[in-house]
């Protein structure tokens, strides 16, 4: 039972971590809590259902399911990245030199707008993800794992590794770290701040799109309000790990998933949502900057 709960925890935790990365990257660079980020995740799930529906209609899913799924992933990422890019340009950029509260309120506004936009265009009822493939898995010593769980864990891990490589090895990654340390100084040495910020939003939104689509596939049920609680949980994960720190967000997300899974099986499932926040309070008491948050650590 323990191993099975750990696998469940890793599945959920991987998703939290992917969303948390978006929060932490934006915070690292702009010191803004992007409350609209949870809605990008929700959009990812909806776009997945829409594109997959379209591919089913033109017969691509029956021709080659993996191809259809891959295209769905790519398109969802592209669309969500476009949403992220547009949101930054329209809702945050004009407020970049305003007081810190203004973009925060703007973010809440974007979140409310996106939720209602999806509710009005897609309907208020639950959308069911098409049952395209058998939810099969394999048994091992009395434990059952589904392939989709393994898929989520693997994809999350690979994406996190790629992101880490990108941040540490590429020119753009270096620029992002520089902007996170000191915006003015970075612009003085010739880094285009606007480009760096846009890239941050595009990457964060892309990761959220993958998370949304994987969750839609996993649970098979999506509605316009899923971004809210997922956003809050991922935000908790980011704070837990130390907001602004990328390894912190990854670790925080996975820790949160494991805590939820194990505590609800060994204590009681009734207060599942509460455990995450209890852990958060304890950690903030002991280490107010979060697990990986150091005063002078590189933030991005």
């Amino acid at each position: 039972m323990f191993v099975q709960q750990v696998i469940n925890g890793l599945t959920v935790g991987g998703v939290y971590a992917l969303i948390a990365l978006g929060y932490t990257m934006v915070y690292g660079i702009l010191e803004l809590i992007n409350f609209a980020h949870g809605e990008i995740y929700m959009l990812g799930a909806y776009l997945g259902i829409i594109f997959l529906g379209f591919f089913t209609a033109i017969g691509l899913t029956s021709y080659s399911l993996p191809l259809a799924l891959a295209l769905t992933f790519v398109l969802s990422i592209v669309f969500c990245s476009a949403y992220g890019f547009t949101i930054e340009k329209t809702a945050y950029k004009p407020l970049r030199n305003a007081s810190r509260l203004s973009p925060l309120i703007s973010a809440i506004g974007v979140s409310i707008f996106l939720q209602n936009y999806v509710m009005l265009t897609q309907g208020a009822t639950d959308k069911v993800f098409p049952h395209l493939f058998e939810e099969t898995g394999f048994e091992m010593q009395g434990m059952t794992f589904t392939y989709i769980q393994i898929f989520i864990i693997v994809v999350s891990a690979v994406l996190m590794m790629l992101l880490n490589l990108f941040i540490t090895k590429t020119r753009m990654g270096k620029a992002m770290r520089a902007v996170a340390q000191d915006k003015t100084m970075a612009s003085l040495v010739g880094i285009n701040i606007d480009t760096v910020i846009s890239v941050t939003f595009v990457i964060g939104s892309g990761l959220a799109a993958v998370a949304g689509l994987m969750v839609a596939m996993y649970y098979g049920l999506v509605n316009y309000s899923i971004g809210y609680i997922a956003g809050i949980k991922a935000f908790t994960a980011a704070v837990l790990g130390g907001i602004g720190s990328i390894p912190g967000a990854m670790f925080g997300g996975i820790l949160l998933g494991l805590v939820e899974s194990l505590s609800s099986s060994y204590i009681s499932p009734e207060y599942k949502d509460a455990y995450a926040f209890i852990i958060l309070i304890i950690i903030l008491f002991i280490k107010p900057s979060g697990l990986f948050g150091k005063a002078h650590e590189e933030k991005v």
Partner: peptide, 14 residues
């Protein structure tokens, strides 16, 4: 009990 609106009931089911 489980939480209404939750999507993951695997922990309870296990």
């Amino acid at each position: 009990g489980v939480i209404q609106g939750d999507k993951d009931f695997k922990t309870v089911l296990i």
